[in-house]
Design a protein around this nucleic acid. Structure first.
Length: 473
RNA sequence: GUCCCCAUCGUCUAGUCGGCCUAGGACGCCACCCUUUCACGGUGGAAACAGGGGUUCGAAUCCCCUUGGGGAUGCCA
């Protein structure tokens, strides 16, 4: 009987949920789902000074948007287990595995400077490892408060088989007796993660490779507590174009991607392809990813965030959606653009308007821009280019000819109606399609960049077309 | 300084335990085609195994060194 796979994403509310964190969450989710396991969330809020309620909320919203909320629905706060953590510290002290350390920050600073000067590894030297009761009393009398440090092996090496990085081995002399409880009584990260991961039954710890250096420390905690080790998997970081992640490179709140008009499916797809691949496939939806995800296939090297490719993924997902599916997601964007929907306009959008433009959209806002003419009333405020087209010799007459022919059409006007009319007019006049199409487009939409005139006429219908044409001629 | 990790086109990557790689795909870029505008789409193209040593009949694939990135070195997570 193997244990059920359990992963967790453990964001810290000292900051936003950015691209890197989102991908770590994604990999945890995918791995758990791929193995029929559970994916949990634990908010690491043990840093009382820097954690904020606002960040917690933003992280939660971001994860929810991406569909990466916990499979058990529980948003666990690490500080909820404070008492448990403190008891564990107490237990280790009783067992002689941890001890009080009264070294002041200034003394630590001096120690580090000295070590640096000598080119040694910078580490706590264990000076208070074996303090007598009298010595402790003396320090207390000075007004010092103790932190608790864990005794760590000084010899040998610590190694583990990382699911993505392979075997990692660290000489123990580079480690030190690290602090497991601060002077303020709050246990520290490296101690608490190990306890919580054990308590929550986490089988696979998947996190950024910036945690590789923390792993040996946590392994000592597992050992001191007598717990079995989980499998560790350290996924590479995501970098910006110039090395470090910057705002431009996605170091921002993932919710900003939602506001920028990205679909969560597209962002997830792009993110999973950063470090993981499924043969030559690019467009991989969540269901397919869950079916095939394997943490052992994740690359070891860091990748660079490329918004241009994200745009391409977004375009792929936008075109997969129908107008009916798109419209609700588009509404906030129309609102932001100051465009007010009504039933007539919704009709235009649903009956061909969105369909006519969605294949060229990279972001949701592109659809809004491309369909804005449905909202506007003729006559338009034409730009220079549009005006010059309308002023072209004979074009207004062409519009009149078209309007005349359109007026006499019986029944619904369609794309074909337009082809028929223009085809006939071309034959009669010897002109080209564009001699009718171009001014028609401008007259109907106020712009030169719009869907095919056949589509536009069909969507508007005879009456609205004539209305718009009449405002010109 | 010390320790750890990484290294294929500009970018994301394929490359399953060395031969099928004169290194494949995708984004972007360039050209052409399609075309009533803008796009979409189609076809083609330029573009990489960081460098140096080994091991081997044979290395992008294994080993070592160099170089270059990144991370850690906190009473942050």
């Amino acid at each position: 009987m193997t244990k059920m796979v359990k992963t967790r994403f453990a964001p810290s509310p000292t900051g936003m949920l950015h691209i890197g964190g989102a991908r770590t969450a994604l990999f945890n989710y995918l791995f758990a789902k791929a193995n029929g396991g559970e994916y949990l969330i634990r908010i690491e809020d043990t840093d009382q000074e820097r954690s904020t309620e606002e960040n917690k909320e933003i992280i939660k919203q971001g994860l929810d948007w991406l569909g990466l909320g916990p499979t058990d629905g529980q948003w666990v706060l690490q500080t909820d287990s404070l008492e448990r953590h403190k008891q564990a510290v107490e237990k280790l002290i009783q067992e002689g595995k941890a001890y009080e350390c009264y070294t002041s920050k200034e003394e630590l600073e001096e120690m580090r400077e000295a070590q640096k000067a000598k080119g040694e590894t910078i580490r706590y030297d264990g000076r208070h490892r074996n303090l007598s009761d009298a010595e402790k009393q003396a320090f207390k009398a000075e007004g010092r408060t103790a932190v608790i440090r864990l005794k760590v092996a000084e010899e040998g090496t610590t190694k583990w088989d990382d699911a993505v990085q392979g075997t990692i081995e660290v000489p123990n002399y580079t480690l030190d007796d690290f602090v497991i409880m601060r002077a303020d009584g709050y246990p520290t990260y490296n101690f608490v993660v190990a306890l919580d991961d054990h308590d929550m039954g986490i089988t696979h710890v998947i996190r950024g490779d910036d945690h590789i250096n923390n792993t040996p420390k946590q392994m000592f905690v597992y050992q001191a507590m007598g717990y079995d080790l989980p499998t560790f998997a350290h996924v590479p970081m995501i970098h910006g174009k110039n090395g470090k992640m910057s705002k431009r490179d996605g170091a921002t709140n993932v919710l900003e991607y939602k506001e920028a008009g990205y679909l969560s499916e597209a962002l997830n797809n792009y993110l999973m392809r950063l470090g993981w691949s499924l043969g030559d496939e690019e467009v991989i939806d969540m269901a397919r990813a869950i079916e095939h995800f394997d943490i052992h296939n994740v690359n070891k090297s860091a990748s660079v965030f490329d918004q241009v490719k994200l745009d391409w993924f977004n375009a792929q997902y936008i075109r997969k959606l129908s107008a009916t599916e798109l419209l609700p997601q588009l509404k906030p964007f129309y609102e932001k653009a100051g465009l007010t929907l009504n039933s007539t306009i919704e009709g235009y959008l649903l009956n061909g308007g969105i369909e006519a433009v969605k294949n060229k959209a990279k972001r949701l806002g592109d659809i809004v821009t491309a369909t804005a003419f449905f909202f506007e009333n003729a006559p338009f405020n034409f730009g220079e280019k549009e005006t010059s087209i309308l002023e072209t010799e004979g074009y207004k007459n062409n519009l009149a000819l078209f309007a005349n022919a359109l007026k006499d059409v019986e029944g619904p006007v369609t794309h074909d109606t337009v082809s028929d009319i223009v085809g006939k007019l071309c034959a009669d006049t010897g002109l080209k399609f564009k001699d009718f199409g171009m001014p028609l487009r401008v007259a109907l939409t106020g712009t030169t960049q719009a869907p095919g005139v056949g589509d536009i006429v069909e969507i508007f219908g005879k009456e609205e077309c004539l209305k718009r044409l009449n405002s010109i001629t």
